[in-house]
Amino acid sequence: MSTIGDTTQPDDIGRIAALDERIAVARAGKPLVVRRAQEAGEALFDGPAPVSAPVRRGLAALAARWHGVPELVEHHAERGADPLYGDDLPADPALRAAAAHIDLITVSPALATRADLARLTEAGWSPDAIVTLSQTAAFTAFQARAVLGLRLLQGREPGPYRPPARTTPGHGRTKSAARTASNGRERPVEYTRELLSWTAWVPPVPVDELTPEQEDSFRGKTNGEYFRLLSRLPKVLAARTALDTAIFATREGLPRAERELAAAATSKVTDCVYCASVHARKSAQMSKREQDVDRLLGVSLPRGADWVPEATAGLAEGQDERWSAVIAFAAALATTPVSATTAHVDRLRAVGLTDAELTDLVAATAFFTWANRLMLSLGDPYWPDASR
């Protein structure tokens, strides 16, 4: 049984992934990643929130169906999930709006708009509840990829894909090319390594109203709109902040420049201009390979009716063998459904990645499928320099 650190507490990701000894040992090299991920899940599904626990779990099970992880669906069903994860939307108007929101930001997060959040508000969901709904979908994206990625490291391909038998609210939409953000500032529409800012579509907690618990939940980060908004669920944010540090701010495992590279590749797949700017910049700074990072940012991915990439291999073109393998795996693991295969893992091992580095790569990629969905579903980026 996979455990959290040196305790005997069960670890949901490790248990659902059914880890073999080799990958369990590699993953245990960073016990805080295991522990913080578990704490985030417990805070989200068992802690206090303005959305009932059965509804949270029901919506998570719905997201897990879209991601193709039936064992994760069963995990929530066994713990009292409301049956919101069937093929039909719920009859209750509020639940129907919530389920549609989960559909949208699970499959097509880059197509979410401020109007989508307005529909949640009209259906009776408060700002705290809206953050809860987005966290539920986003955390499930992380959890699903952590499970599927770890299985791939063990030589196990994803199983049959049986998503809900309906189209998502994003089907047929295209991503907004608006040049003005919701706060009236200029909005970036192309990928860049330059510094961007972000503004929320629902009210963040005002600076002078933050509680000590809310301030502690994002300690070490800025008190900008993003973290003040997420601090509406402080226990979830605290665990997420700690998990971010455990994955990205350590010397062990995959070189940090490559963890940041995986985050940038993931953000390209999910189509999050803001996240890509931050982590492409970090990867370029750490690796001193600005041209290679810019090559990744410059790739345009063909996208289908749900804005899901039809192919991701182009992101890895023109890179050396190691970076090409890292980008190709991260990009394929980030798609919905996951398109990564054991051949991607074989290629990574062939260029020298160890099991510890591979588990790090899975964690970094999975984390940014979470981060992207929060950024894309709760606000939009803008240029901080008004003179642009």
Rank of each mutant, 00 (worst) to 15 (best):
L95V: 08
E78T: 12
W125G: 07
L111H: 04
A118T: 15
P93V: 03
A99C: 12
L84W: 00
L72I: 05
H101F: 13
P109S: 10
L72E: 02
R96Y: 09
D128F: 09
G86E: 07
S126F: 00
G86R: 10
A110M: 09
P90G: 14
A112Q: 07
T121V: 15
I102R: 04
T106R: 01
A129Q: 02
R119V: 11
G124E: 07
D87A: 09
G80L: 02
G124I: 04
T106V: 05
V73R: 01
T113I: 09
T113P: 07
D103F: 13
E74N: 14
A94M: 13
A112I: 00
E71P: 02
L120S: 02
A99L: 05
A129M: 08
V107I: 06
L104V: 07
A94H: 12
L111E: 01
R96A: 15
D82F: 05
S126K: 06
A110I: 05
V107H: 10
A97D: 09
A98F: 13
L89G: 01
T106C: 01
A77N: 02
R96I: 14
L120W: 02
P83K: 06
A118K: 13
T121S: 15
A98I: 15
L104E: 15
D87W: 00
A77H: 07
T121Q: 15
P90Y: 11
G124L: 09
A100L: 13
R119I: 03
A94I: 08
A94K: 13
I105S: 10
L104N: 10
I102V: 15
H101L: 04
G80R: 10
A99K: 09
Y85K: 08
P90E: 11
H75Q: 09
D116V: 03
T121N: 07
A91T: 14
H75K: 03
H75P: 00
A97F: 01
D116Q: 00
S108E: 05
A77I: 15
E122F: 01
E78M: 15
R114G: 09
R114W: 11
D82R: 06
L95K: 12
D87L: 06
A94V: 06
A100D: 13
R114K: 11
P127T: 04
L120D: 01
V107E: 05
R114F: 03
H75M: 06
H75A: 11
A115H: 04
G86V: 12
I102H: 02
D116F: 05
P109I: 11
D92T: 05
L104H: 12
G86N: 06
A115P: 02
A110W: 01
E71L: 06
I130C: 07
D116N: 04
S108V: 02
L120E: 01
V73A: 09
D103K: 10
A112D: 00
L89C: 07
W125C: 03
I102F: 04
L95E: 07
S126V: 02
